[in-house]
Design a protein around this nucleic acid. Structure first.
Lengths: 341, 341
DNA sequence: TTGTATGCGTTATCAT
DNA sequence: ATGATAACGCATACAA
């Protein structure tokens, strides 16, 4: 069938072990036989069968990527492709392959993960989210397979590798960005608090409100579970007796929905209400108006997670160094100084 | 190390071949021993090693996905994630895994492909683009490995499986959408004509212009190689003695850039100029104004390509049935009846 | 219906 | 510096 090292060995008049050593460029082999063997490989078109190598080495040099919720949702959000881009870049550099989960439900994704792990298809995994009551992380811990989570793990912080932003701080800064502009009534539109990131940003917002002695109304803080539900939240917020003059929104996609609702309500941004969002994706750049956004450096998030993972795979005994990626605010037209009407 | 079929066999008091047959649920094994073996598998936590199976079966049940240009570019365009979503859905259904190229240049991607193919890491590939002078497709033909291209192959149409839209027709329809609205001066902003899709749409546009006896000015048709360069094209177009009153733009991303330029030029859409774009992604839906867009059913493109590929993998002798996915126009606010100023 | 033996294409451990 | 050979974990042809 295929041409194997046996064929090469026979043709070159050496043993298969010698061929194998030539492949790995072992220093124990003389340059002369290396040349000879390589010439034969060229001649008969030999190529390594990675499956065979994987089997004997018990490793695949591929990393699995676990998506959140469902493949569809992940791919609809500009966040995931950008994370993937970062992961991909580092993996390519290290000559690792990438394998994706394909499930459309949490359960299906969990099955994907078990298959990857137990089928020994991956050397490690990147979990692209952090969520309460998630089965994946505990499972991976139990398996003892290297993995890193993007976001702050819900428990066992010290035993789990992770890369994250300081989301509490980032949300605090975002809120204070509006405070500095003179806003005193600031609303918060977050996300599903099952996800750690949503909770953290919500806490950061609350901290900023408290530290600046502003109105702490529970009415002002919303945690819709989807960008679609975010719309509802805006309607409610703007119907309040004293509606907010500024809004902190925890992702660009939701912010886009918000923008649409505001338009329907005939509220201009930033004239009537200021907005600051998170992630600084293409969306915030190209929306109308372009939105001030907290850049979470998504690409770096992905890149570093891959780096952590591959480091860990290569040396599992090394200490667990989690990494925090800094954030910064990209100011655009959606947030301006508050002026009394 | 791991628990293997040998362990299961010993514990269950059967031969390894019996265990293997239980795994594949062979009808030749009695229900009784099946139950016994499965119980043991459960007890000692047995799991199939896919690498070993891959090796002996000479197949991996995974499909490789080839990105265009570079991973980064692909992931910056909403097109690719959506294609991936479709591919992923069908692959999941068929229990196939997905492996992505990670290269950042055409050459690097070609290396990824050869590695996938020669390393026997995939059973087939989906090439997510069709391009002139591309090395990948000829290489895959030479290898004789199953593959399908998304887009119309540049040669050997009959020997290559592909799934595509009828881009000539779609562009013709798009152009005529503006014609019907009374526009007579219609510009075209396409993409890099190295890609077949760009050429096809350009031809469709020209055909519509010709058939409707409109002004055929070469000045009106532009083929910038990136959304960034599209901006330049708009400036030039609008500086013409007789600028167009309608614009056909072949992708949402470029259209977004165009919108921005138009705004800078103080030209309102659709009051001063109408726009129709392609792909109907989130971008056209959420842009301001929302844009009329030709829906190319990207998800279906991906889904069908996976279906074609896996069909072909399962039965390489079956006839090559390529598929054309229909398009339709989603009307939004960016295109309106032309009124003389 | 079940068992025996062999091979899939490598790498790795001993030798020499 | 190189060769012989035993794994790696599974599937399958052939026996029984």
């Amino acid at each position: 069938m295929s041409v194997t090292i046996k064929d090469v060995a026979k043709r070159a008049g050496v043993a298969t072990s010698t061929v194998s050593r030539v492949i790995s460029d072992s220093p124990k082999i003389s340059e002369k036989t290396k040349r000879k063997v390589r010439k034969v490989m060229e001649e008969i078109g030999y190529h390594l069968n990675e499956n065979a190598r994987n089997l004997v080495q018990q490793s695949t040099k591929t990393v699995g990527i676990v998506m959140k919720n469902s493949t569809s949702e992940s791919l609809h959000d500009p966040f995931f492709p950008e994370v993937l881009r970062g992961i991909s870049a580092y993996c390519h550099k290290q000559d690792y392959s990438i394998s994706l989960t394909t499930g459309e439900s949490e359960e299906a994704i969990f099955q994907d993960v078990t298959k990857m792990v137990q089928g020994k298809k991956v050397d490690g995994l990147i979990v692209s989210y952090s969520k309460k009551n998630d089965k994946v992380v505990p499972y991976l811990i139990e398996c003892g397979i290297p993995f890193v989570v993007i976001g702050k793990p819900v428990g066992q912080i010290n035993q789990i590798l992770y890369v994250d932003n300081d989301n509490i701080y980032a949300a605090k800064e975002a809120t204070e960005h509006l405070v500095k502009l003179g806003h005193e009534k600031i609303g918060f539109i977050g996300g599903n608090t099952e996800f750690e990131v949503a909770e953290a940003r919500s806490n950061g917002y609350k901290e900023a409100i408290r530290l600046n002695n502003l109105v702490v109304t529970e009415d002002y803080v919303r945690s819709p579970k989807s960008p679609e539900l975010a719309k509802q939240a805006v309607y409610e917020l703007m119907k309040l007796p004293v509606p907010p003059t500024g809004l902190v929104i925890t992702d660009d996609l939701s912010a886009l929905s918000v923008l649409l609702v505001l338009k329907k309500l005939n509220l201009d941004v930033p004239e009537n209400i200021s907005i600051i969002t998170f992630n600084n994706t293409m969306i915030s750049k190209f929306s109308s108006p372009p939105m001030t956004s907290v850049d979470t450096q998504i690409y770096q998030l992905g890149y570093e997670s891959a780096r952590c993972l591959i480091d860990e795979i290569k040396d599992p005994s090394s200490i667990k160094r989690s990494v925090i990626i800094p954030t910064f605010i990209e100011e655009r037209e959606s947030s301006v100084t508050y002026v009394q009407k």
